[in-house]
């Protein structure tokens, strides 16, 4: 069994037009995912843009406020899951609700697991 990280990206604007009923449904779906037996860890990141540190050749690292990229999608959270291999990890991730709400998931294997 290996561990995989699911990096979940989404556009926060996608949530703005949901009705209370739809928000509840979404909450329930996300909740169900954090409770899945293969989920080792689930974390959400703060919605602010964060800070970026960039090495400057021959000088002190530069610290700037986010965002890190031009796209509207931001890294909103991450999961660590157990899966036999990449195929299984991807298959499990395909079921994640964020995909229903226009998000993107990056699946990465944790080194040495």
């Amino acid at each position: 069994m290996s561990q995989f990280m699911l990096l979940v990206y989404g556009d926060p604007a996608n949530w703005q037009t949901l009705s209370p009923e739809e928000m509840q449904k979404a909450t329930e779906k996300y909740l169900a995912w954090t409770k899945k037996s293969f989920t080792v860890d689930a974390k959400r990141l703060e919605g602010d843009a964060g800070r970026v540190m960039r090495a400057v050749r021959g000088g002190k690292p530069r610290v700037v406020d986010g965002p890190y990229s031009e796209t509207k999608e931001v890294l909103g959270g991450y999961y660590t899951i157990d899966a036999a291999d990449y195929e299984e990890a991807v298959r499990l991730a395909l079921d994640h609700p964020t995909l229903e709400y226009g998000g993107t998931i990056e699946v990465r294997k944790v080194w040495g697991t």
Partner: peptide
């Protein structure tokens, strides 16, 4: 399971959000 384990079992009351919103 870390923090995940603290997630409470049991579904939310049906239409809770909609009714509370009102």
């Amino acid at each position: 399971m870390g923090d995940v384990a603290t997630a409470e079992a049991g579904p939310l009351v049906e239409h809770l959000f909609r009714h509370q919103a009102g």
